[in-house]
């Protein structure tokens, strides 16, 4: 059981680390927008490239934080009934949901996403507007990385829930789960 708990914490911690770093994309995004807005009037810096960069940062930001948000209990739930369930019932729901819904979702996206990125890599795909950023496969990889961290967080939730069902001290409610793990 300690093994389950440790595994769970390691998986969750890795998803969290990736998210914590990717979170800074928002600062880069704001600066990119400001740069484009300010310079546009005076010099031709290549707005298309900057505007491509904007959505590249946006994509990285949300994809790489999907797992982080799950670990932190930030994905919204309809908790009208949920709040009345006991710890074990909640753990059972988490186990079933993660195993039946979330893991297959990640696997489908990863399986087809891999082909998607590989295709882009083989073509060395660039921006369709020609004046935009080249090497699309780099940004497309964010899809695969993002869903991998989501998968890790799902596996973390599964092992955590198993531990709870087997009698480990139940982790707190989702929104304070991170305080429990103490990372």
């Amino acid at each position: 059981m300690t093994f389950l708990l440790v595994t769970s914490n390691v998986l969750k911690a890795s998803a969290r680390r990736v998210g914590e770093v990717a979170a800074w994309c928002v600062v880069a995004l704001i600066l990119t927008v400001m740069l484009d807005v300010i310079t546009r009037r005076f010099i031709v810096l290549g707005s298309t490239k900057l505007q491509d960069l904007e959505w590249h940062l946006h994509a990285t930001l949300f994809l790489l934080c999907l797992g982080y948000a799950y670990v932190e209990g930030e994905h919204v739930r309809i908790d009208v009934l949920h709040s009345r369930f006991g710890a074990k019932a909640a753990a059972a729901i988490e186990l079933i949901g993660a195993a039946l819904f979330l893991v297959p979702f990640c696997i489908v996206v990863l399986y087809y996403g891999w082909g998607f990125v590989a295709h882009s890599f083989r073509l060395d795909e660039g921006s369709p507007s020609l004046t935009g950023l080249p090497h699309r496969w780099i940004i497309k990889s964010a899809l695969v990385i993002g869903f991998t961290t989501l998968l890790l967080s799902a596996l973390g939730a599964i092992t955590g829930a198993l531990a709870t069902l087997l009698g480990a001290r139940p982790p707190g409610r989702h929104h304070d789960a991170h305080q429990e793990v103490g990372l």
């Binding site: 546009r40 031709v44 810096l45 290549g46 707005s47 298309t48 505007q51 491509d52 369709p128 507007s129 020609l130 004046t131 935009g132």
Partner: peptide, 21 residues
């Protein structure tokens, strides 16, 4: 500042046009 696409956008770039997405 023009919204323009493709080969045409690249050509206009040579006239100092800033192509916008």
């Amino acid at each position: 500042k023009l919204r323009f696409f493709g080969l045409g956008a690249k050509a206009l770039g040579k006239f100092g046009v800033s192509a916008q997405l």
